[in-house]
Design a protein around this nucleic acid. Sequence first.
DNA 1: CCAGAGATTTTCT
DNA 2: GAAAATCTCTGGA
Length: 209
Amino acid sequence: MPVDLAASAVVVAPALLGAVLSHDSPAGLVSLRITEVEAYLGTGEDPGSHAHRGRTPRNSVMFGRPGTLYTYFTYGMHTCANVVCSPEGSASAVLLRAGEVVAGEDLARNRRGEKVSARDLARGPARLVVALGISMADNGADVDRPPFHLELPSVPASGYEETLRTGVSGPGGADPFRWRFALRDEPTVSPYKVHPSLRSVRADRGVQR
DNA sequence: CCAGAGATTTTCT
DNA sequence: GAAAATCTCTGGA
């Protein structure tokens, strides 16, 4: 493994750009090339992280073995998936935000809807989870044990951008960290959106992208 | 293209 | 009881 998943999520996140994650479910295989991620750190280090206030039943997987999947349910209807990083006992994870479907496109479209364009199949964290067929039942699963497989890029991606994270509000409103990583010139990268509570601020001052 | 609002449930204050 | 690591649809430019 060229990348040490036990490292901090800030280090692992850009290394996952270009990696291919596969899920071989009974319905078939879907693989996608990761084009956009976000890093989240542990207790007391990152106000935007689920682990910020310590271990809870929901986030306990984040404190577990690196290389496992942390799935969570949010906004009453969506599931999102992370790859757990950092040594056991310390919580940090990489949120998978978007990817390009490179295998099993028919199955992915079956799950997402017949009218969905190829580029939108896994464009956004909740969409990615649906396209890949991941559910809350996969919380704690190993990303490199069947039915999952993670193929890391032989050469680390270059030419990615670092921006503020999406949907995260920190002290004073803004996310203090630029921990969103996205490959440049990738149509599958999700459109950048600021946190809902910052929309009026954005209208006043303007925000990048 | 952009902005607004609704859906709906887990989690923690 | 409010907010949340979101998405989809609607209506307008």
